[in-house]
Write a protein that binds this DNA or RNA. Structure first.
Lengths: 141, 141
DNA sequence: AACAACTATTGACGTCGACAATTATTGTCC
DNA sequence: GGACAATAATTGTCGACGTCAATAGTTGTT
């Protein structure tokens, strides 16, 4: 009989939970949560995205995106703009304040991850990251 | 600016979520969920454990353990026995039915994990597993 | 005997993720 | 060009989850 922590899938589940907790702890003072942060970080990579696009790319339900963008808009970190060619869509863009926020909290985010990966050295972290990215590419796309 | 999937902590969070979903999907027909399964699997490694012990080892709140053991007891997979030397405690043990259930679902659990780790070959899976276990040892103990 | 510490339990609360239903708009098909 | 399916955003609902506070019963300490 295998032990409790013998299954990789279960390990991923448990560690993923812990990672989310750590991230939220670091974000606590800003009033945002991991999902907000992920959305901001995604916005930083594009000129602006439809909410539908955010949903598929981040893996969150469309209904979840609504609330997240609401919060970010209230804080002035993101804004909804009307789409010129489709009046159903809104284009979500990162504001200057949002960009500044990302700059300021970038280090804190790295520190959260670093806390979790404390037992691993630099090369091991790289290895882990590469493996995870391979999984993410096929699984979360 | 780093991309969305550039952070290992975030990757762990997302993949961990997905792993939990896969596990729950394969457990669906049995009426159990991931947490029940984890508890059963832990019981299989011991002669019997106090609920307090289950709480600390599994990382679940003591109040959560109550409901989980209730469910498992109702299904006949686990049982509470009075502790001989402390009448506050109950010793939770795996029943024969519970052990049989684990045997039957063992393969399915492995398949769930295997689905997730599909993009990795055998040695890569070993590497990943080892790294995760190192993290789990320091972080979830 | 009094009191602090511990075990299991119950209850409450906020969050999270999944899903159905709705509204407004666009595209398609005959 | 008019009926109808498809799509984008939104709202509402629901179960599961994690955390915390409080309680009852029991043990250990002094």
């Amino acid at each position: 009989m295998r032990g409790l922590h013998a299954d990789t899938g279960y390990l991923l589940y448990r560690i993923g939970l812990r990672s989310g907790q750590l991230f939220n702890a670091f974000l606590q003072e800003s009033g945002l949560r991991l999902r907000h942060y992920a959305l901001l970080r995604f916005l930083a990579t594009t000129e602006g995205a439809l909410q539908r696009e955010l949903s598929t790319r981040l893996g969150y339900d469309p209904s979840a995106i609504v609330g997240l963008v609401d919060d970010l808009e209230k804080l002035g970190f993101a804004a909804r703009r009307p789409s010129p060619d489709d009046r159903r869509s809104r284009i979500v863009v990162l504001t200057d304040d949002g960009r500044a926020f990302l700059r300021d909290t970038d280090e804190a985010g790295l520190r959260a991850t670093s806390t979790l990966l404390r037992p691993l050295d630099a090369t091991e972290r790289d290895t882990l990251h590469t493996l995870l990215q391979r999984i993410a590419e096929t699984e979360l796309s």
